[in-house]
Amino acid sequence: MVSDKGKQPAGKSSGKRKVDDDKTGGAKKRRNRGVLQFLEDAAVASDGDYSSGDSIFDDDFFEEEEYDLGTNDKNDQSKSHSLPVFPKEEEFEEEFDKMMEERYKNASAFLRFAEDEPDLRRFVEEDASIPSIKDPTTWKVKCAVGRERNSAFCLMQKYVDLQALGKKLQIISAYAVEHMKGHFFVEAEKQSEVIEACKGLCSIYTTRVTPVPRSQVPHLLNVRSRRAEISVGMWARVKNGTYKGDLAQVVAVNDAKRRVTVKLIPRIDLQALAQKF
């Protein structure tokens, strides 16, 4: 929770700066603004950290002390707190490390080298944080639940097939995000192009096509794939079959094949065996 508070302002600032980059071409102005903003944000972020850190311990005394020391630098503060509340500093460091990692993991994105290819540079500057009016509209399209991915695949296949016949499907892209059930998204200039493209695909409902506000589009695409979280030694529960409901332990993971091997206690029906013999 604490790290979230620290993260937010920093993230916002980089977004702001990108927009700024696009509007003002002046390199000098851009640099100054960037630095100023960074300083301001850092102050806000650490403020948030302190107050929320204190609230965990729910101690009026420290809260008061915090306000008194408000203008002091960070080191003094953490030292003055470290004596009575010991675990705090450690927790603090951890949070701070996390925050810094979050902030600087993309540090290379802020660097630009003179020897960069001109191609690459244009690429960075084009990378606006929301689509402009010149960009195509994103349309939300209803489809059968479970056919979201499939719809995107089918439209690509249709595009390729029509291209071979010398015709062009006018849509620009089609995408399915995993957290959105029963819908997928199409980039196209006009609604009629979306409807035309989806003609003949029975799991897509073209009567339900609505434009997505430009400001919402980046949120749709902002997915981060989780790492495969299953590791040897973890516990699992069988969902189906003879062993349904039984507890299992993972003994091997094959990431490439997306298979795990588990061990289970055999279900031996002793009564049935006894009757048999």
């Binding site: 960009d135 995107a152 595009y159 499907l169 892209s173 995993e178």
Partner: peptide, 30 residues
């Protein structure tokens, strides 16, 4: 085999999503 979300890009140069995902310079495809 572990990935999240699918995008079919017909026209990478015009697609804002493709540029945002930094695949705007690649060939059309899934």
């Amino acid at each position: 085999p572990n990935f999240n979300g699918i995008i079919s890009v017909m026209d990478p140069t015009r697609s804002w999503a493709a540029r945002w995902l930094r695949i705007g310079k690649f060939v059309p495809g899934v």
